Amino acid sequence: MAPIPTPPAEPDDNPDSYVGLDSDGAERLARERGWSAVRSLPPGAIITMEYRVGRLNFEVKDGRVARAWKG
């Protein structure tokens, strides 16, 4: 029987710390902190709900991060 794969670790980072930052600076900071993918979305964007380890999502309104979440 094959071993169960171990998912890659996510950065030990609080998504709430990005709220209020300008979107470009927030994306740069997220990548520096180890996020492999950063996705910026407009408010109300329709997205799939699959969870992707290592991805940080930003809802960007008026050039600033209004909400941030993992996956």
Rank of each mutant, 00 (worst) to 15 (best):
G25M: 07
P7Y: 11
V65Y: 02
D62S: 15
R39V: 11
P11E: 06
G71F: 10
R33M: 10
V19K: 11
R64C: 02
P42E: 10
G54Q: 05
R67K: 14
S17N: 14
Y18W: 07
D62P: 11
W35Y: 05
P8I: 15
R55M: 07
G44W: 10
A30K: 00
G44R: 13
T48S: 10
E32A: 09
D62G: 15
E50S: 12
Y18N: 02
N57Y: 13
D22C: 08
D16E: 14
A37M: 12
A26P: 01
N57W: 07
V65L: 05
A66D: 10
P7E: 12
V60R: 08
S17P: 11
A37S: 09
G25E: 02
G71T: 07
W69R: 07
S23H: 08
W35E: 00
G71I: 05
D62V: 13
V65H: 03
V60F: 04
R64L: 09
V53L: 04
G54A: 03
T6H: 12
W69N: 03
A9L: 14
L41Y: 02
A45G: 00
K70A: 04
V65S: 02
A2N: 15
L29H: 08
R31P: 00
L29P: 01
R33N: 07
N57K: 09
F58W: 07
L21N: 02
A66K: 13
W35D: 01
I4C: 07
N57G: 03
R67W: 02
A66M: 14
K70R: 15
P15T: 12
G20V: 01
P42A: 04
A30P: 00
A9P: 11
A66N: 14
W35F: 09
N14T: 14
K70C: 07
V53E: 13
L21K: 13
L56Y: 05
I47E: 00
S40D: 07
A66H: 13
R55A: 02
G25K: 08
P5G: 08
A30S: 01
P43G: 02
G34E: 12
L41E: 04
G25F: 03
W69H: 05
D16P: 08
R39Y: 06
N14R: 14
Y51E: 06
S17H: 13
E32W: 05
G71N: 13
V38A: 09
M1R: 10
M49P: 03
L21W: 06
S17E: 13
R64H: 04
D22G: 05
G44I: 06
D62Q: 15
Y51S: 05
V65R: 01
V38G: 02
R28N: 00
D22R: 12
N57V: 09
W69D: 00
A26W: 04
K70I: 10
S36M: 10
L29C: 06
W69L: 03
